[in-house]
Amino acid sequence: MFNRLFGKPKEQSNALATIEKLNETLEMLEKKEKVLLKKAAAEVEKAKEFTKAKNKRAAIQCLKRKRLYEQQVEQLGNFQLRIHDQIIMLEGAKATTETVDALRTGASAMKAMQKATNIDDVDKTMDEINEQTENMKQIQDALSAPIGAAADFDEDELEAELEELEGAELEAELLRPATTAPAIPVQSVPVGRQPARPTAQKNTAEEDELAALQAEMAL
């Protein structure tokens, strides 16, 4: 149904033109309704005047014309309801068609994307990435491997030797004597008393005097 109404751009343009025409007709009917209502009100006023003038026949004629105007107003109201109904249906159909077209466009785009990147392509790409990663890891391992004389060193032996050095250093640290002796507190000497000279200094003076006496005797 919607394809028949708005299946092509030209048909959609015709639908828009139809809605615009219906709106114009609705506006015209509303204006005409207002005019008829004014005429009916005018006939009522005339009927009142004829009633005051005791002209019953003329007053009745005014009321008849008022009824005719009211019938036309009622008819115009029905026309407006029909036009409103058509406008609502066309606008709803247009919105639905635009929604369906948008969904169809999205589905086509999704289908094209899936066709361009199917699951086999994804799996193939992931396999290539994993392969390149493994190759790079092998290259890095090859570049970091020791070469020449360093390649012949046994890592276990080197670690054992390092442990021996650490043990010897710890043992030497424990056996090393203290380099500084504890400080001996100095006792204060009372004022007026001289400290006693060491005995060694006294013996040296006596030996000097004896050597000087022997020298004089020799002369």
Rank of each mutant, 00 (worst) to 15 (best):
M1T: 09
R4A: 08
L5C: 05
F6V: 15
G7T: 07
P9W: 04
Q12S: 10
L16E: 11
L16M: 12
I19S: 02
K21A: 15
T25D: 14
L26G: 01
L29P: 01
V35K: 09
L37E: 02
K39T: 02
A42K: 05
K46Q: 14
K52Y: 03
C62I: 04
K66M: 14
K66H: 05
E70W: 02
Q71R: 12
Q72V: 02
E74D: 11
L76A: 09
G77K: 10
F79K: 12
Q80G: 10
L81W: 00
I83D: 04
H84T: 14
H84E: 11
M89L: 15
E91S: 13
K94H: 14
T96G: 13
E98I: 09
D101S: 07
A102N: 10
A102D: 09
A102E: 07
T105E: 13
T105G: 09
A107S: 04
S108F: 00
S108R: 05
A109V: 10
A112T: 10
I119F: 03
D120E: 14
V122S: 03
M126K: 14
E128I: 10
T133E: 15
E134T: 09
M136P: 00
K137P: 00
S144V: 02
I147R: 15
F153A: 14
E155V: 12
D156T: 11
E157R: 07
L158I: 14
L158R: 04
A160N: 07
L162K: 15
E166P: 00
E166L: 07
G167V: 02
A168W: 04
E173M: 06
L174W: 03
L174Y: 12
R176T: 06
A178H: 09
A181T: 06
P182M: 05
P185Y: 03
S188V: 11
Q194V: 13
P195E: 07
T199N: 05
T199P: 10
A200R: 03
A200V: 08
A200Q: 12
Q201T: 14
K202L: 11
N203K: 14
T204H: 07
A205G: 11
A205S: 11
E207D: 08
D208P: 00
L210S: 06
A211E: 15
A212E: 05
A212W: 00
A212M: 01
Q214S: 06
E216L: 13
M217L: 15
A218N: 15
A218W: 01
